[in-house]
Design a protein around this nucleic acid. Structure first.
Length: 200
DNA sequence: ATACGGATTGACT
DNA sequence: GTCAATCCGTATA
């Protein structure tokens, strides 16, 4: 059921970002399985992408994870508050990553509600990358872990969306990247309530 | 050693 | 719509 390791070894991180829409992301933390299907992603295209941490081949203690072979998690802290969950792709030495920005929750709803301090499901429970990580119990201590592990993984359950239902648009929050901020590297399911706005 | 600011969210007007 | 929260990676010295 898990996507095989080789799935993540493609050098086309943008195509993979599109393909991950509709795939199921799960975590098992303290024996509690939570997850749902991906409805929003963003591609970060390695050393030539000004929006990427790895732009200009920047290899540091933080970005080291991105330089490993695809098929592992890259988790970092943003704004001192929010954990961001990414999937590393491509081969070792080519630092590609895909940010998971939103999922539609399907499994472990009670646990997700507890982690999010909510009593009922609202759209913002897994809307936005910081919210996804919190809902799934993801933190920096799973940085670098394999997606073949039983802690975090992705499954294909046969759910698909047509190209008409999936929008390609510029990424969010990367204005510092100059003209690279205009690249259509963000993918989302049109109209899905869990997608961070705009979602039309 | 120090300064700057970010792949954001949620509370509040 | 505005804005505070909050830590660490990164650049500069």
């Amino acid at each position: 059921m898990k996507l095989p390791d080789k799935y993540y070894h493609s050098s086309d991180v943008v195509a993979l970002s599109r393909d991950l829409i509709g795939k199921y992301l799960f975590t098992s933390i303290n024996n509690e399985v939570t997850g749902g299907y991906i409805v929003e992603t963003e591609a970060y295209n390695g050393i030539i992408d000004r929006a990427s941490h790895s732009f200009g081949n920047r290899l540091t203690s933080r970005t080291r994870t991105m330089f490993e072979q695809g098929g592992i998690a890259y988790v970092y802290l943003c704004y001192g508050i929010h954990e961001m969950f990414n999937i590393v792709t491509s081969v070792a030495g080519q630092p590609h990553a895909i940010l998971i920005r939103a999922i539609e929750p399907t499994d472990g709803i009670e646990t997700i509600l507890t982690r999010r301090n909510m009593e009922t499901i609202k759209p913002n429970i897994t809307r936005g990358p910081g919210s996804v990580a919190k809902a799934l119990g993801i933190s920096r201590n799973i940085n670098g872990i394999s997606l073949q592990s039983d802690t975090v993984w992705v499954e294909d359950r046969g759910l698909t969306f047509t190209n008409k239902e999936v929008i390609a648009a510029p990424r969010i929050g990367v204005a510092y990247a100059g003209e690279d901020a205009l690249l259509p590297y963000r993918f989302y399911v049109k109209g899905n309530i869990y997608v961070s706005k705009p979602n039309k």
